[in-house]
Protein backbone atom coordinates (compact mmCIF):
# COMPACT_ATOMS: atom_id res chain seq x y z
CA UNK A 1 0.00 0.00 0.00
CA UNK A 2 1.49 3.24 -1.08
CA UNK A 3 1.24 6.63 0.50
CA UNK A 4 -1.01 8.94 -1.42
CA UNK A 5 0.61 12.17 -2.49
CA UNK A 6 -0.75 15.35 -1.04
CA UNK A 7 0.32 18.84 -1.93
CA UNK A 8 0.66 20.97 1.13
CA UNK A 9 0.94 24.69 0.85
CA UNK A 10 2.71 25.94 3.91
CA UNK A 11 1.45 29.44 4.68
CA UNK A 12 4.27 31.89 4.87
CA UNK A 13 4.42 35.52 5.78
CA UNK A 14 5.11 38.32 3.36
CA UNK A 15 8.55 39.19 4.65
CA UNK A 16 11.26 37.80 6.87
CA UNK A 17 9.91 39.53 10.00
CA UNK A 18 6.74 37.47 9.84
CA UNK A 19 8.66 34.27 9.41
CA UNK A 20 10.69 34.78 12.56
CA UNK A 21 7.50 34.80 14.69
CA UNK A 22 8.86 37.70 16.74
CA UNK A 23 5.76 39.84 16.39
CA UNK A 24 3.30 37.00 17.14
CA UNK A 25 5.28 36.07 20.21
CA UNK A 26 5.21 39.66 21.44
CA UNK A 27 1.48 39.84 20.70
CA UNK A 28 0.89 36.70 22.73
CA UNK A 29 3.05 37.92 25.57
CA UNK A 30 1.07 41.16 25.77
CA UNK A 31 -2.11 39.14 26.32
CA UNK A 32 -0.60 36.78 28.84
CA UNK A 33 1.41 39.36 30.73
CA UNK A 34 -1.68 41.49 31.16
CA UNK A 35 -2.96 38.78 33.45
CA UNK A 36 -0.16 39.43 35.90
CA UNK A 37 -1.99 42.52 37.08
CA UNK A 38 -5.36 40.86 37.43
CA UNK A 39 -6.72 39.21 40.52
CA UNK A 40 -5.87 35.51 40.61
CA UNK A 41 -8.88 33.24 40.26
CA UNK A 42 -7.41 30.20 41.95
CA UNK A 43 -8.14 29.04 45.48
CA UNK A 44 -5.42 27.69 47.71
CA UNK A 45 -7.07 24.36 48.38
CA UNK A 46 -7.18 22.80 50.97
CA UNK A 47 -6.40 25.87 53.11
CA UNK A 48 -9.21 27.78 51.40
CA UNK A 49 -12.35 25.98 50.41
CA UNK A 50 -15.09 27.00 48.08
CA UNK A 51 -18.51 27.23 49.69
CA UNK A 52 -20.74 24.86 47.81
CA UNK A 53 -24.42 25.54 47.21
CA UNK A 54 -26.90 23.84 49.58
CA UNK A 55 -28.27 21.68 46.79
CA UNK A 56 -24.83 20.21 46.13
CA UNK A 57 -25.03 16.48 45.50
CA UNK A 58 -22.40 15.02 47.78
CA UNK A 59 -22.37 12.39 50.50
CA UNK A 60 -25.77 11.33 51.83
CA UNK A 61 -27.11 11.88 55.28
CA UNK A 62 -30.09 10.66 57.25
CA UNK A 63 -31.75 13.61 58.90
CA UNK A 64 -33.05 13.68 62.46
CA UNK A 65 -36.22 15.26 63.75
CA UNK A 66 -36.46 17.63 66.71
CA UNK A 67 -36.09 14.82 69.24
CA UNK A 68 -33.01 13.44 67.59
CA UNK A 69 -34.67 10.39 66.05
CA UNK A 70 -34.17 9.51 62.42
CA UNK A 71 -37.02 10.60 60.22
CA UNK A 72 -36.88 7.55 57.97
CA UNK A 73 -40.03 5.44 57.90
CA UNK A 74 -38.52 2.65 55.76
CA UNK A 75 -40.96 3.16 52.89
CA UNK A 76 -38.22 2.12 50.44
CA UNK A 77 -39.10 4.89 48.01
CA UNK A 78 -35.45 5.87 47.76
CA UNK A 79 -34.20 2.38 47.05
CA UNK A 80 -36.89 2.01 44.38
CA UNK A 81 -35.98 5.29 42.75
CA UNK A 82 -32.25 4.61 42.88
CA UNK A 83 -30.89 3.94 39.36
CA UNK A 84 -27.75 2.34 40.75
CA UNK A 85 -29.38 0.00 43.28
CA UNK A 86 -27.10 1.15 46.05
CA UNK A 87 -29.57 1.51 48.94
CA UNK A 88 -30.46 -1.46 51.11
CA UNK A 89 -33.21 -1.14 53.66
CA UNK A 90 -34.51 -3.75 56.07
CA UNK A 91 -37.69 -2.52 57.69
CA UNK A 92 -38.96 -3.45 61.08
CA UNK A 93 -42.50 -3.00 62.34
CA UNK A 94 -42.44 -0.32 64.95
CA UNK A 95 -44.40 -2.66 67.17
CA UNK A 96 -44.11 -2.88 70.93
CA UNK A 97 -40.40 -2.39 71.03
CA UNK A 98 -40.45 0.92 69.19
CA UNK A 99 -43.76 2.20 70.48
CA UNK A 100 -42.23 4.51 73.01
CA UNK A 101 -39.78 6.07 70.63
CA UNK A 102 -41.69 6.06 67.35
CA UNK A 103 -45.33 6.46 68.22
CA UNK A 104 -46.76 7.44 64.85
CA UNK A 105 -44.81 5.17 62.57
CA UNK A 106 -45.75 1.84 61.16
CA UNK A 107 -42.27 0.95 60.06
CA UNK A 108 -38.76 1.81 60.98
CA UNK A 109 -35.43 0.85 59.35
CA UNK A 110 -33.23 -1.52 61.29
CA UNK A 111 -30.76 -1.64 58.40
CA UNK A 112 -30.16 1.33 56.14
CA UNK A 113 -27.09 0.99 54.00
CA UNK A 114 -25.83 3.09 51.11
CA UNK A 115 -22.94 1.80 49.04
CA UNK A 116 -21.21 5.06 48.18
CA UNK A 117 -19.03 3.38 45.58
CA UNK A 118 -22.07 2.18 43.64
CA UNK A 119 -23.86 5.48 44.04
CA UNK A 120 -23.87 7.77 41.00
CA UNK A 121 -24.91 10.85 43.02
CA UNK A 122 -27.93 11.67 40.88
CA UNK A 123 -30.07 12.88 43.79
CA UNK A 124 -33.11 10.83 42.88
CA UNK A 125 -33.37 9.31 46.37
CA UNK A 126 -33.63 12.80 47.83
CA UNK A 127 -36.38 13.73 45.41
CA UNK A 128 -38.27 10.49 46.06
CA UNK A 129 -38.23 10.73 49.85
CA UNK A 130 -41.66 11.79 51.18
CA UNK A 131 -40.35 12.49 54.68
CA UNK A 132 -37.22 14.52 53.83
CA UNK A 133 -35.35 11.82 55.70
CA UNK A 134 -32.51 11.42 53.23
CA UNK A 135 -30.58 14.39 51.99
CA UNK A 136 -27.26 15.17 50.41
CA UNK A 137 -24.42 17.18 51.91
CA UNK A 138 -21.56 19.12 50.38
CA UNK A 139 -19.00 16.51 51.41
CA UNK A 140 -17.31 15.28 48.30
CA UNK A 141 -13.77 14.34 49.25
CA UNK A 142 -14.46 10.80 50.38
CA UNK A 143 -11.48 8.59 51.01
CA UNK A 144 -11.06 5.31 52.77
CA UNK A 145 -8.94 2.19 52.75
CA UNK A 146 -11.28 -0.64 51.84
CA UNK A 147 -14.42 -1.04 49.78
CA UNK A 148 -16.26 -2.16 52.88
CA UNK A 149 -15.60 1.22 54.45
CA UNK A 150 -17.67 2.89 51.76
CA UNK A 151 -20.84 1.06 52.74
CA UNK A 152 -22.40 3.64 55.04
CA UNK A 153 -24.78 2.15 57.57
CA UNK A 154 -27.53 3.95 59.47
CA UNK A 155 -25.39 5.15 62.34
CA UNK A 156 -22.77 6.57 60.05
CA UNK A 157 -25.33 8.37 57.89
CA UNK A 158 -26.84 9.91 61.02
CA UNK A 159 -23.34 10.87 62.05
CA UNK A 160 -22.88 12.65 58.74
CA UNK A 161 -25.99 14.66 59.55
CA UNK A 162 -24.63 15.63 62.96
CA UNK A 163 -21.40 16.74 61.41
CA UNK A 164 -23.11 18.64 58.62
CA UNK A 165 -25.55 20.44 60.86
CA UNK A 166 -22.66 21.72 62.96
CA UNK A 167 -21.20 23.45 59.92
CA UNK A 168 -24.53 24.60 58.49
CA UNK A 169 -26.83 25.20 61.46
CA UNK A 170 -29.39 27.01 59.32
CA UNK A 171 -29.61 24.27 56.75
CA UNK A 172 -33.33 23.97 56.30
CA UNK A 173 -35.08 21.20 54.53
CA UNK A 174 -34.58 21.09 50.83
CA UNK A 175 -38.15 21.54 49.73
CA UNK A 176 -39.09 24.14 52.30
CA UNK A 177 -40.12 27.56 51.13
CA UNK A 178 -37.18 29.10 52.89
CA UNK A 179 -34.80 26.99 50.90
CA UNK A 180 -34.78 29.32 47.95
CA UNK A 181 -34.39 32.39 50.10
CA UNK A 182 -31.45 30.74 51.78
CA UNK A 183 -29.99 29.74 48.48
CA UNK A 184 -29.89 33.35 47.37
CA UNK A 185 -28.51 34.65 50.63
CA UNK A 186 -24.93 35.67 50.98
CA UNK A 187 -24.23 32.75 53.29
CA UNK A 188 -24.25 30.35 50.39
CA UNK A 189 -22.46 32.58 47.96
CA UNK A 190 -20.54 30.62 45.37
CA UNK A 191 -17.65 33.03 45.12
CA UNK A 192 -17.14 33.72 48.80
CA UNK A 193 -14.27 32.02 50.46
CA UNK A 194 -14.46 30.55 53.93
CA UNK A 195 -10.98 31.36 54.97
CA UNK A 196 -9.79 34.29 52.98
CA UNK A 197 -6.21 34.35 54.12
CA UNK A 198 -3.70 33.72 51.43
CA UNK A 199 -1.01 31.36 52.61
CA UNK A 200 2.50 32.51 51.95
CA UNK A 201 5.18 30.39 50.42
CA UNK A 202 2.94 28.78 47.81
Amino acid sequence: MAVSVKNITVPRGKNWVDNTYIIPVIKGLIITLRHMFKKPIVLYYPENKKVLPPNYRGLHMLTRDEQGREKCVACEMCSTACPADCIRIVANDSGDVWKDNFENREKHPIVFEIDELRCIFCGMCVEACPEDAIDMTDMHNLADYTRQDFIYDKERLLGVYDEYIKRHPDHAKRRDGEFKAMKNSSYFSVVSVENAKKPGGH
Binding site: A2, V3, V5, I8, V10, P11, R12
Partner: peptide, 8 residues
Protein backbone atom coordinates in the same frame (compact mmCIF):
# COMPACT_ATOMS: atom_id res chain seq x y z
CA UNK B 1 5.11 30.60 -0.75
CA UNK B 2 6.68 27.26 -1.06
CA UNK B 3 5.28 23.83 -1.51
CA UNK B 4 6.34 20.75 0.30
CA UNK B 5 5.50 17.47 -1.20
CA UNK B 6 5.24 14.13 0.44
CA UNK B 7 6.83 12.03 -2.21
CA UNK B 8 5.99 8.48 -2.88
Amino acid sequence: SHDTQIKK
